[in-house]
Amino acid sequence: MTPVLEVRNLSTHFMTRRGVLKAVDDVSFTVGQREIVGLVGESGSGKSITGFSILGLVDPPGRVVNGQILFNGGDLLKMSPTAMRTIRGKRIAMIFQDPMMTLNPVLSVGTQMIETVQAHDRVSRAEARARSRDALGLVGIPSPEERLDSYPHQFSGGMRQRVAIAIALLHRPDLIIADEPTTALDVTIQSQILFEIKRLAAEFGMALIWISHDLGVVAALADRIMVMYAGRIVEAGQVDGVLSEPRHPYTSGLLSAVPAAVPRGEPLRPIPGFAPSPLSRPSGCAFRDRCARATDICATEPMLEIAAGREFRCFHPHLWSAA
């Protein structure tokens, strides 16, 4: 089965006055059909820019400087803006963290949804409205017919995020990229959204890239997980494998820093130090200054190792008895 998306050696750099900021640096991964992939990392790790790069949403001074993004076999980076427009919102949709920023506050939700339908399909307004109504119903918004005439501010945060998901679903895309979509929501509302998205992805056979800093959410939702640090994917594999037996010291560091990892009241085990500034990353492994396992060899670039369905970039990976 061919993957929906194949990203090869993607690099997105920002040409700033203070130098070249390598937000995404030589990132490669694939997303299979119907697969849910979690992309995790701390702020500044480049996970959002990876998502933006796929959809061609990187603004100057940022630029995709290298790589290929193959979507159903065609390279998105080589496409004309017109061709890209037939894919963006139609075959690949995006859900952002804050729907208040992405929904137009002066247009009713219905108007915005009808516009989205008619941007890609030549259908009558009545039919576009019917499709919008169905999409709202699908994501669990009560009385969708009346809600089409509501404005974004008349929805609660959780309901606005449902609207954003409904818009993403309008064209039954092959791939949805969701950038921290539940970060701003309360626990019970987050749980409702995760429940709906999991159901819908299975129902329509969509692939999903779920960008999040919350390992717990990704653990519950995704099939596969990719961990980013300083613009690179440092580890990737099946969720259960990566979280139970992490190979990269950064992944294991993240896992032991959560409060649940130590008995109640005992000191937590944070990763020492700070993430390096993206303008002045050290050569070799960017994590080595914070890593207990680092040696001199870490000053050179670790190659990507692939073993038993697991990928990681490390000279001194954790060894597990099963491996």
């Binding site: 019970t188 509302i189 749980s191 429940f195 390992l215 717990g216 959410v217 653990a219 259960d240 896992l255």
Partner: peptide, 24 residues
């Protein structure tokens, strides 16, 4: 009970969601 049940956790990996209905 709902808050504790719905708390996503790395250590206790739950694959199904049983959210409580409704808005605050």
């Amino acid at each position: 009970q709902a808050l504790i049940r719905e708390l996503p956790s790395v250590t206790d990996r739950r694959r199904v969601f049983t959210p409580i209905k409704g808005e605050i």
